[in-house]
């Protein structure tokens, strides 16, 4: 799994809209990859996670309910949403991705295909 930031930038250049790149943690163990992404302010309905061929895309729109007539005096988050794409490697089984989204924290579990799981090979003594 590699972070193709260049590709993200290219798509951003093609589209006029600028979006935030959410920070992620990616951890790999024997059974698969776990990805955590911070998407604060995104509700379940505005979150979109999809896999197309070997590209994983995470998109979310900020849906803050701000009171009418709010005059913002200081903003560290000023773009309308998040987008980030990753290229998945072939041994990952994209049909069995599980996602959990709780309080702005997305947890994706991408298992490795059976054939790519680590196996212990028994050595028989002749």
């Amino acid at each position: 799994m590699s972070d193709n930031t260049a590709a993200t930038r290219a798509t951003q250049a093609a589209r006029p809209e600028a979006l935030l790149l959410p920070p992620v943690d990616v951890i790999e163990n024997g059974t698969g990859i776990i990805l955590y992404a911070d998407l604060p302010g995104v509700s379940k309905d505005t979150l979109n996670v999809h896999v197309e061929a070997d590209t994983l895309t995470i998109e979310g729109r900020l849906s803050l309910a701000v009171p009418e007539g709010l005059e913002v005096s200081h903003a560290e988050v000023s773009l309308p949403g998040y987008r980030r794409t990753f290229t998945l490697s072939r041994e990952l089984d994209t049909t069995k991705v599980s996602a959990e989204f709780k309080q702005g924290l997305l947890t994706l579990r991408i298992p490795k295909a059976e054939s790519a799981q680590p196996r212990k090979i028994a050595v028989s003594v002749a």
Partner: peptide
């Protein structure tokens, strides 16, 4: 990350602290 703003009636502070 913070976002601070105000209306004539109130001061609103948003802190983006997920998870």
């Amino acid at each position: 990350a913070l976002k601070v703003g105000g209306t004539p009636q109130a001061v609103e502070i948003y802190a983006f602290a997920p998870g």
